[in-house]
């Protein structure tokens, strides 16, 4: 039964008033009366806690730390920008080089190959037309159209 009252007693801060029902219980219950007295003693002690002063150069030390950290941050940012700049230049050089080399390579392969793929297909087509026209005596154009029609389908 006292549990509920105990909580209420402990909750009270210094100079906080007790409700009537609580006062009534305390007047009847010796255990809660002792708890109330002890709680008040502890509240007094907690209230009496004296605040220790900071050292005299507290503010200066804070500003020193701030300046030091801000300077470090600024340096870091500058380093970062420098780093980014160098990185961009290096990346651009690599990109240009790779494009240049790729261009050289493509030209080389172009020179080695006699025809492009479309040329090859066209040549094959002409051969086929020749064969058909020779065998059937047809005009090349009609065969070409027929062949093209087949290919399209």
């Amino acid at each position: 039964m006292c549990k509920e009252f105990e909580e209420k007693i402990i909750e009270k801060r210094k100079n906080e008033k007790f409700e009537d029902f609580l006062l009534e219980h305390i007047s009847m219950c010796p255990k809660c009366r002792v708890l109330k007295r002890k709680n008040e003693e502890i509240n007094d002690l907690l209230e009496e806690i004296t605040y220790v002063d900071t050292s005299k150069d507290f503010n200066e030390k804070v500003f020193e730390k701030i300046d030091r950290l801000e300077n470090m941050n600024n340096e870091h940012i500058t380093n970062g920008v420098k780093g980014k700049f160098l990185y961009t230049i290096a990346a651009s050089i690599i990109l240009f080089l790779s494009i240049f080399l790729a261009g050289v390579d493509v030209n080389k392969t172009k020179k080695e190959m006699p025809y492009s793929l479309s040329d090859l297909r066209h040549e094959k087509l002409l051969e086929e037309i020749e064969q058909v026209t020779e065998n059937n005596n047809l005009s090349p154009l009609s065969v070409y159209d027929e062949w093209q029609f087949k290919m399209d389908n």
Binding site: E7, I10, E11, L35, K38, N39, E41, I42, L45
Partner: peptide, 16 residues
Amino acid sequence: KNFIHRGKLKLIKLVE
């Protein structure tokens, strides 16, 4: 609530 309640009870006991 628990911290305050438990803390005060402990403190009462320890100081005593």
